[in-house]
Structures are given as structure tokens and as C-alpha cells.
Amino acid sequence: MREIALGQYYQTSSIVHSTDARVKLLISIAYLVMVFFVETYIGFGVLAVCFLLTVFASRVPLFKVLKSLKVILFLAFFTFLMTMLFYGGAKKTVVWEWWIIKIYEGQLYACGLVLLRLVFLVLGPTMLTFTTTPVELTDGLEWLLKPLALIGIPIHSGALVMSMTLRIIPNLIDETDRIINAQKSRCADFDSRNIFKRAKAMIPILVPLIASSFRKADELADAMDSRCFVGAKNRTRMRKLRFTWRDPIALILFAAEFTVILWLKFNFFPFVDLSTVGWIV
């Protein structure tokens, strides 16, 4: 149980890790937008190269990053099926044929693009969570959402709740461990094949867990009250987010990548004629 690392932060020191969380957040958001501008294989090639460079710079093992793609395996398969079934594009060259099923060249191209888009949409945020601790992330988010405070949304309290939740999760995991062990000692069966039995077996874990969470939350609230905690607004931090020389560099590099992607899409430097390389598009 204890293996469930929170998020998936990969502890090491690298330029990517020490880049400011706010910058990484901004880049990640822009990255997601950028992925939607990529419509060609050469575009994805550019993304792949930049991505590999980032992974390399972050010192996170590549296979670890790629492992995160496991979660979209099903989705990917589904997407594949869908583009195969409902393809409305050009039906010229048949690549493969069996009975009434025909697979066209264009179909494969289209499907590949959709899958690649899916893959890169997952990989971006994955890199963010691999290189940024959850605490940095909440701090970063709080900073980015600051403008919302102007219209009366309690950003600080929200951020405080987030960071306290993050802080409590390891304790909850420990507690879950303990409760599971206690119920196992009373011969509780958690490995039944029957899904209904399995769901029912969760009750002896969930009830005590929820009860203890409420108790802990109450105690924590009392502890904060008794130390005269008045509000999250002027909370100070042990680790302040600081912009450094790395941050503008990260932004410039990302801007360069984005420019290339946009150029590939809109072709706004007409002196290089992209259409001459026909297979790209």
C-alpha cells in the first residue's frame, strides 16, 4: 500500500526540477494548447525531439515517463477502433483487406495522428508531475489564480485546504494499511473474484477510514483554532517560489518550440514552401 506515491514526483536534482513551478505550470498549459495545433507527422516529430530533450534534461528515466502511457492504453485502443469504423476521408489506396473490412492508407494516417495527439497530451502533464512536488504545484497554482481573489474567490483558503490535504494523504494511507491489516486478521476476504462481494468487502475498510478522517479533521481544526489561526491570507512559506535565470530560458525555449509548431500549421514564412515536401502534410 505504501508504494502509492503521491502524484509521481521523481526525486532528483535537475534544471527542470529547479525551474519555478509557476513557469512550469504556464508552459504545461500552453503546451496542451500547442498540441492541438499539431496536425502533421513532422509536427509531432518536433514535439518528440523537444520532449526527449526535456526528459533528458530532467534526469527522469525515459521508461518511467513512458510507463505513464499505460493509463491511456484502453482509450488509445478505443480511439483506434473509432477512426477505423467512422473514417470519412479519402478512400484511395487499400493497404489491407479481409472479408468486408478494408483499411485505407488515409485511415491509418488519420488514426496515427489522433493517437499521437493523445500520447503527447498525456506526456506533458506527466513531465510536470514528475519534476514538481505537489506542494510546489499548489503554491504555483495559488499564485497563478491570484487574480481570482479580486472577484472575491477565496484562493488562499482553497490553496491551504489543498496543501493540508496533500499533507494528510500519507497518514490516510498508513491508516488504511492498519485498518486493512486489522480486518484481514479477522479473516476479511478482499480477494474474492465476485465483484459484488468485493465491493461489500470495502465497507469494513471505508467506514472506519471515514470515521477516522472526520475525527482527524476535527482535531486538526481544533489545533489550528487553539493556536489562533485566523486566515490563510497572510500565510508565510518555508520554501518560497523564486524566479531564477532558468525561468526565462525555459520560457524562451518553449516559445521557440511553439513558434515552430505554429509555423508548421500556418506556414507564415512563405519563403520556405512546406507543400513541396508532400508526404509531410
Binding site: E175, I179, A182, Q183, R186, C187, I203, V207, P208, A211
Partner: peptide, 28 residues
């Protein structure tokens, strides 16, 4: 084995879950 070796964990009250005491004691 677990019927033979019973373990009462630290703060065992945190493992109670059933609607009634009788049901909880009867869980094992």
C-alpha cells in the same frame, strides 16, 4: 492460521465498522 492466531492491533477501536456491536464482534 488467522483463526488460530488472533491479533489485536494498536488502538483496535479504530477498526470498528458495523451497525451494531453484535454484528461487529460477529464479523470474524
Amino acid at each position: 492460521l488467522r483463526a488460530k492466531v488472533g491479533i489485536v492491533f494498536q488502538y483496535p477501536e479504530s477498526q470498528l465498522f458495523a451497525d451494531t456491536v453484535a454484528l461487529d464482534v460477529g464479523f470474524g
